[in-house]
């Protein structure tokens, strides 16, 4: 939902970032306001997944210049956990399996880390159980998944549901969904998208990273950005995604080549 008076949640200016000395992001600009849903599309290797990891603070990626302001604060020097408690949430393309750590324990530790960062007391085990079981309904997850090791042996769909469950619990002001549709059948995709839509608030924003416009049928974006070679080459409305689906990326790249 576009509201010109909404506050700015994310403001990225001329962002350059590299991994192992190779520059991947080459001057990326993006502004996201509260209530908005932005989609970032692009071919493999365009830098869109790198962008999501840079936002979340992955240690392999180095910001070489530019700024990332989040709710008015420059977060580019913050540790990943500090960004998380400030309200950045990355739903992973490939959520990690962590054998031996129960999902329930992991979620409780994460939730309490957020409470602690807000200066609130830790929630006890029983209150947490009530809270988390309520949240599982948002993603239609069977509560038995809470007592298994984090993502261990989960199917692709279950892993993605578990990501959205974490989002439901942590209530971020910016959720970045990195290729959340990859590996999902249509039912799982709908469930995940419904979960994301239920969690949308006028005070938070979503950044949806995807190759295909399929997910955007269910999570409808206000803006569509196309990334190529480390920066955004075109921004449009939802129709841009539909055009990409119909015509592929070539015309856009050619148009870009002609313009430059």
């Amino acid at each position: 939902m576009i509201n010109p008076d909404a506050k700015t949640i994310l403001s990225v200016k001329d962002l350059h970032a590299s991994v192992d000395g190779i520059e991947i992001l080459k001057g990326l600009n993006l502004e996201v306001k509260a209530g908005e849903i932005h989609a970032i599309m692009g071919l493999n290797g365009s830098g869109k997944s790198t962008f999501s990891k840079v936002l979340a603070g992955h240690p392999d990626y180095e910001v070489t210049s530019g700024t990332i302001e989040f709710n008015g604060q420059d977060i580019s020097e913050l540790e990943p956990h500090e960004r998380a408690t400030a309200g950045v949430f990355l739903a992973f393309q490939y959520p990690l399996e962590i054998p031996g750590v129960s999902n329930r324990e992991f979620l409780r530790v994460a939730y309490n880390a957020h409470r602690k960062a807000r200066g609130e007391e830790e929630i006890d085990v029983f209150d947490f159980d009530d809270l988390i079981e309520e949240k599982t309904e948002i993603v239609k997850m069977n509560v038995s998944f809470l007592d298994r090791s984090v993502n261990e042996g989960f199917s692709g769909g279950e892993k993605k549901r578990n990501e959205i469950l974490q989002m439901a619990l942590l209530e971020p002001s910016l959720a970045i969904l990195d290729e959340t549709d990859s590996g999902l059948d249509i039912d799982a995709l709908k469930t995940v998208a419904e979960g994301v839509n239920k969690l949308a608030t006028p005070n938070s924003a979503n950044l949806v990273i995807t190759h295909y416009q399929r997910l955007l049928n269910y999570i409808v974006p206000d803006y569509v950005h196309v990334m190529c070679d480390g920066h955004i080459i075109k921004t449009g409305s939802r129709e841009l995604a539909l055009a990409l689906e119909a015509k592929g990326y070539e015309w856009l790249l050619e148009e870009q080549a002609v313009a430059s």
């Binding site: 979340a56 603070g57 992955h58 240690p59 392999d60 540790e79 990943p80 956990h81 960004r83 998380a84 408690t85 949430f89 990355l90 992973f92 959520p95 990690l96 962590i98 992991f106 530790v109 994460a110 880390a113 957020h114 960062a117 974490q166 942590l170």
Partner: peptide, 15 residues
């Protein structure tokens, strides 16, 4: 594993 650590950190859990 650095990726497992990052996953936990990205949920607000310190290193």
């Amino acid at each position: 594993a650095p990726d497992e650590l990052f996953y936990l950190q990205s949920r607000g859990i310190n290193r």
